[in-house]
């Protein structure tokens, strides 16, 4: 399973790199928020969920959408604004989602994912299905966050709060504007919610902790809270070079790149031959080339669409 997880994380990384290239070539307009560095959360959490569990994500959502099994071609086509996109080109990177995979939104409003997942959990209570609210550290200062912690606990909802703590809001370090920034999970504990702090760069640690939390929520034990410590290797959005980071910080985190860790575990612990890993990566490379080419060949929607609707 680790080899598959490695390949899936590798696919997300390469997908994001393709998207960045398409931006630089002017094929994609507007903005996009990439998740390079945070792939272990997408994949490890994804593996802990069943197909009919529900995820609400954010504008930094490409990795989670792919982890839900959505087609790479259709995600890329959406970001390119083409008819074959997951939302027909209407949503774009900031808002793309895939209801057919129970990924109910990339919420562009900070905290929106938590509200939506709380409601999904309310609807799913008693069915054995769970909902996941994905969000970032900066979101823990938003009203939605505190209100939904209470709401979920009071009604014992099958909800997993998935906090991806990458240390930054847009350009501001979370610690600059946050009380007790080193203990964000403690905020959930204050509501009596069970929490776990997880190494978000280690896909196995993410998977194991996520599975524990998801199973507890599934068993009717109420809301669960996971804080994944992670880091984004790229700027907040396309236009951000990330130069507010202290020197050496990025490099330190890159030493714990989720792909490096999984590759090391595969070879050192499981004795997986390098050729096997390389072959899987090459498979992904070729698949992605085809998906991106096909997405680029998809037509743009025609303006008449708006006339019909309005």
């Amino acid at each position: 399973m680790l080899l598959r997880a490695h390949a899936d994380m590798y696919a997300i990384r390469r997908f994001e790199e393709h998207i960045m290239r398409l931006f630089l070539r002017g094929e994609i307009a507007g903005t996009t928020h990439l998740c390079n560095g945070q792939e272990a959360v997408c994949v490890g959490l994804g593996y802990a969920l069943d197909e009919d569990d529900v995820v609400a994500g954010t504008y930094r959502g490409h990795g989670h959408i792919l982890a839900r099994g959505s087609e790479e071609l259709r995600l890329a086509a959406e970001l390119l604004g083409r008819v074959d996109g997951l939302c027909g080109g209407r949503a774009g990177s900031l808002n793309v989602f895939d209801p057919t995979r129970n990924y109910i939104g990339s919420f562009a409003i900070i905290g929106g994912s938590i509200g939506a997942a709380t409601g999904a959990a309310l609807a799913l209570k008693g069915t054995g299905r769970v909902a996941v609210a994905d969000f970032g550290d900066g979101t823990t200062n938003q009203g939605y966050f505190f209100e939904c912690l209470n709401f979920a606990k009071v009604y014992d909802l099958p909800l997993v709060f998935s906090l991806e703590n990458n240390g930054y809001m847009e350009y501001t370090p979370i610690g600059n504007v946050t009380a007790r920034p080193d203990d964000l999970a403690g905020r959930a504990e204050a509501f009596g919610i069970e929490t776990e702090r997880v190494d978000g760069m280690d896909v196995r640690a993410v998977y194991e902790a996520s599975l524990r939390a998801v199973e507890r929520a599934r068993a009717g034990e109420g809301p669960q809270f996971l804080e994944y410590r992670t880091y984004r290797f790229v700027g907040h959005s396309r236009s951000d070079p990330g130069d507010y980071r202290p020197e050496g910080e990025l490099e330190r985190w890159q030493e714990r790149d989720p792909l490096t860790l999984s590759r090391r575990a595969l070879t050192d612990e499981l004795g997986t031959p390098d050729e096997d890993i390389a072959a899987r990566e090459q498979e992904v490379d070729e698949r992605l080339e085809r998906a991106i080419d096909a997405a680029l060949a998809s037509p743009f929607p025609t303006p008449e669409e708006l006339e019909v609707l309005s």
Partner: peptide
Amino acid sequence: LPVPFSPTL
């Protein structure tokens, strides 16, 4: 209608 993303729209 809401503002669509796709450039043509």
